[in-house]
Amino acid sequence: MDKKAFISLRGMLKAGLMAALTAVLAWVQIPLPFSPVPITGQTFGVMLAGSLLGKRTGCLSMLIFLLLGTAGVPVFAGAKAGLGVLLGPTGGYLLAFPLAAYTIGSIAFPSQGSPSPMRMGWANFLGGILVIYALGTIQLSLVAHMSFGAAFVAGALYFIPGDLLKVMVATFVGLRVRAILPRFKMEEKG
């Protein structure tokens, strides 16, 4: 091939598989005793896409995930799908996924060596919580005509304790998987 490809075949497949995995995780739910909204595994997908695939491929995999949902595969939490979900009041949390994965990927891959657990944790916190809630709350307040504060209470407050737990689990899992991956010769150059 004379022209440089947009993405390597391996990168393409990893992004596709990660999008599928995020969809599968959306269906894994843990009910919370103190909050009306359950924990879904979806954000694990976002955090691990960023911290395992890096910013570019991770971001791409989340884009694929959103496109799948737009195409009608019930991949969003609670087996929802469609353009209406993305543009509706709660769509901002989903639309933030690519940016969140990008943020995580850029922090979790230091210029050399592997990231410290602390750095990985920060990456997951900034991308997985800050980016997602900021964009999600903005869209909720815009689409549903609420004040920013009301939107935060309606859409974010109850989720935060669960999400902090998820950040810890995702950080741990991310470090473990990254330690195991080289054994399968999964790392490629370029």
Binding site: L9, R10, L13, K14, G16, L17, M18, A20, L21, V28, I30, I39, G41, F44, L48, L52, L165, K166, M168, V169, F172, V173, R176, V177, I180, L181, F184, K185, M186
Partner: peptide, 23 residues
């Protein structure tokens, strides 16, 4: 939440392995 770890680690490893085989 801790219980998710023994599920997630093998799941992600296996997805990566599948990507490699498919490539």
């Amino acid at each position: 939440a801790k219980g998710m770890v023994p599920l997630l680690v093998p799941l992600f490893i296996s997805a990566f392995r599948r990507a490699d085989e498919l490539a």
